[in-house]
């Protein structure tokens, strides 16, 4: 397939900084450093690449170019603009350099949910199952490309006759295709739950009180009534307790006499 090379992005090395077009000269230069230097056979001292004659005992590093610093005017000289591009190495934060911090934080900062349905929430059907199971894999599209290049035309009246269907439901095996996965339940915090339960209780109490008031009274009025009944109960309870205490005291007195 002609597009095979184009698709091959699986290897991470493809994304790593490679020799940019302008750095071809540099890499060439680097290769040349390893080559032995030209020694003159006529007894003359060796000559550096910039043409300066040196003594036999000249330091080795003077005979060679420094990596990344080619001699100006030399065969491997890189223009200043291109030099800036060459200077970008792994010593700098390349994500920051290319302005990808936002993307980095977006994907690596928070947890990305694994199922495909989280990426395509509006897609109908079960899409989280492996594509190989139902033959819907994208790889099969590449391995067995569909027939393309033919123009698409609308169906004529007689052609549509072929799509005349019989009334009635389809067999069960095909029904699964159009079933929606069950909606995911949202997990709420315990605090929220408690609050929610409290409020719901309140609501239910209010509702019940509302029903007692034949739906005519407002929720605030029902709340006030509720309070009143509670107060009355408390008052009654306290009166009963006091009576009990008095009785106990009387009993004690009679017992002592």
């Amino acid at each position: 397939m002609a597009g095979d090379e184009r698709w091959n992005y699986g290897n991470m090395d493809m994304y790593l900084p490679q020799n940019p077009p302008s750095s071809g000269a540099i890499s060439q230069n680097y290769n040349q450093q390893t080559e032995p230097l030209p020694h003159r056979t006529d007894g003359e001292p060796p000559v550096t690449q910039n043409g300066q004659a040196t003594h036999e005992d000249s330091a080795f590093y003077l005979l060679k170019d420094m990596p990344g610093i080619p001699r100006p005017g030399g065969p491997h000289h890189v223009s200043p603009g291109a030099q800036a591009a060459v200077d970008i190495t792994g010593s700098v934060n390349l994500i920051q350099h290319h302005g990808l911090e936002h993307s980095f934080h977006k994907f690596c900062g928070k947890k990305v949910k694994e199922p495909l349905s989280n990426f395509l929430p509006n897609l109908p059907g079960f899409i989280d199952t492996p594509g190989l199971q139902d033959g819907s894999s994208l790889r099969s599209l590449i391995e067995k490309p569909p027939i393309v290049g033919k123009e698409l035309y609308q169906l004529s009246g007689p052609q549509l006759q072929g799509f005349r269907l019989h009334p009635g439901p389809i067999p069960e095996q095909y029904r699964l295709l159009h079933q929606q996965p069950p909606a995911k339940k949202k997990h709420k915090n315990k605090k929220h739950k408690r609050e929610h339960s409290k409020t719901s209780e309140g609501m239910s109490v209010q509702d019940s009180s509302q029903s007692h008031t034949d739906g005519g009274a407002s929720s605030t009025a029902s709340g006030e009534k509720e309070k009143k009944t509670k107060k009355q109960k408390k008052h009654e309870d306290s009166e009963k307790k006091e009576k009990k205490k008095k009785k106990d005291k009387k009993k004690k007195k009679t017992g002592s006499t």
């Binding site: 991470m12 994304y15 790593l16 792994g90 934060n93 390349l94 994500i95 990808l100 993307s103 980095f104 994907f107 690596c108 990305v112 949910k113 694994e114 199922p115 495909l116 989280n118 990426f119 899409i127 989280d128 199952t129 492996p130 594509g131 190989l132 894999s137 994208l138 790889r139």
Partner: peptide, 22 residues
């Protein structure tokens, strides 16, 4: 996608690998 996984995970993995290599 064929494995039913979120393709954003690929981007995430790529970025993490790039950062590690960097």
């Amino acid at each position: 996608i064929d494995q039913g996984r979120n393709p954003q995970l690929y981007t995430k993995d790529c970025m993490e690998k790039s950062l590690a290599k960097n």
